Amino acid sequence: MTQHDQSTAATPSGQPLGIKHQPSPTAARIDELKTQHNRPAFIGYLPFGFPDTATSVDAVRTLVENGCDIVEIGLPYSDPVMDGPVIQRASQIAIENGERIANVFQAVEAVAAAGGVPLIMSYWNLIFHYGVDAFARDFANAGGAGLITPDLIPDEAGEWIEVSDRYGLDRVFMVSPDSTDKRLGIVSRNARGFVYAASRMGVTGERDAIDVGPQTLVRRTREAGADHVCVGIGVSNAEQAQLVGSYADGVIVGSALVHTLLDGNGNAKADRGAALADLAKTTASIAEGVRTARQ
């Protein structure tokens, strides 16, 4: 099916399809882990196309094989608003390689085939230019679960809310420590899957310690009506993952995983096999922290 084939978005009479009534795949996985294993979800992030298309597909598969329950596949963007230096560098490498959005569905299929829940994290401009309905259709056909949209707020997400309902896709909106109670309520009412709680203001990146701010934000977001709240930005190792997992529904790790694929000069490691082995080791270590978070 091509990007411009809109046949799946309408009935034979030409009317738009209605809401697809199915449970949230992301929430279902989080609930399964809680009820069956008494633990939070481990959510790993990697940008697609870094260090190259084939390796990035292997990398997201590696995440699932070493303990990630949900995988955020990032769409590289030239003007990010919340990515720190590690993710910016990886994304720039992907862009320099000429990576195209249409190829990302390979990674989505790889995550789904490995047993993980595939999400895409993207700045909205990329989705808008691809075509919101076309992207949702192609993403759903590849086995995708939903989108994380860091620069799209519910107030401006009318088209995405409509289209995501049509295809049964999750929509993950973000909150931060300075979000008002009113804002937390708006996000909680419109999110599907989980609410992404940023542990601090600023960009992504590894940290030496996690303070009490995220725990307060999780509590406030739940009080505002969110069923599932996952914490990201700054979680860098097993100990931090264990701490965050003791109170959050999911632990999100990005820069610490991306870092394993970069060398000391900020370039992609030349030995792809060794890089994937490093990624597997780091992923497994953090996964152990997540698994033991509530013991």
Score class of each variant (00 low, 15 high):
Leu75Arg: 08
Val163Ile: 10
Glu65Gln: 14
Phe50Cys: 12
Asp83Gln: 12
Lys20Tyr: 06
Ala41Glu: 12
Gly234Cys: 12
Arg291Val: 14
Asn237Gln: 14
Ala28Pro: 03
Thr11Gln: 15
Thr180Lys: 01
Val290Pro: 14
Val172Ala: 02
Gly44Val: 10
Lys281Cys: 05
Asp278Gln: 04
Ala90His: 09
Gly250Pro: 04
Phe194Ile: 04
Phe50Glu: 13
Asn103Ser: 15
Val132Asp: 03
Thr292Ile: 07
Thr204Leu: 07
Gln106Leu: 00
Asp165Thr: 05
Gly14His: 01
Tyr167Glu: 00
Ala136Asn: 07
Leu63Ser: 04
Ile101Met: 13
Asn237Ile: 00
Ala248Cys: 13
Ala209Ile: 05
Ala145Gln: 08
Lys20Pro: 00
Gly67Lys: 07
Trp160Lys: 00
Ile101Ala: 15
Ser13Tyr: 15
Ala275Phe: 11
Val235Lys: 00
Leu126Gln: 02
Glu223Met: 12
Asp211Leu: 00
Asp178Arg: 15
Asp58Leu: 10
Thr11Met: 03
Ala27Val: 08
Gly115Ile: 05
Tyr123Asn: 02
Ala145Trp: 11
Val60Asn: 05
Arg137Ala: 04
Ala275Gln: 06
Arg171Leu: 01
Trp124Cys: 07
Arg220Glu: 06
Gly266Asn: 03
Ala110Glu: 03
Met1Tyr: 09
Leu169His: 06
Glu223Asp: 11
Asp211Cys: 02
Arg89Gly: 09
Ala277Val: 11
Val57Ser: 06
Val108Thr: 10
Glu72Cys: 10
Ala256Pro: 11
Gly213Pro: 06
Ser179Met: 10
Pro150Met: 02
Leu257Thr: 12
Ile153Cys: 00
Phe139Cys: 00
Gly202Pro: 12
Asp133Thr: 03
Ser78Glu: 08
Gln88Val: 13
Gly266Ala: 05
Leu243Phe: 15
Pro177Glu: 11
Val251His: 08
Ala280Cys: 04
Gln106Ala: 02
Leu276His: 05
Arg200Pro: 03
Val81Thr: 09
Met201Gln: 15
Glu109Val: 01
Pro23Ala: 15
Gly168Pro: 08
Ala112Leu: 05
Pro16Tyr: 09
Arg220Gly: 14
Ala114Gln: 02
Val163Tyr: 05
Val64Thr: 10
Glu109Phe: 04
Thr2Ile: 14
Leu243Pro: 11
Ala238Leu: 15
Arg171Glu: 08
Ser255Gly: 14
Ser199Thr: 13
Gly18Thr: 06
Val132Gly: 00
Leu262Gly: 04
Gln240Cys: 02
Gly158Arg: 07
Ile127Gly: 07
Gln88Leu: 13
Gly193Pro: 06
Ala145His: 11
Phe139Met: 08
Leu75Glu: 10
Val195Met: 12
Thr11Ala: 15
Asp211Pro: 08
Thr149Trp: 01
His37Gly: 04
Pro177His: 14
His259Tyr: 09
Gly14Phe: 14
Asp58His: 13
His259Gln: 02
Lys281Arg: 03
Ala238Pro: 00
Glu162Val: 11
Arg222Phe: 01
Gln240His: 12
Thr260Trp: 13
Pro177Phe: 13
Val195Glu: 09
Asp5Lys: 09
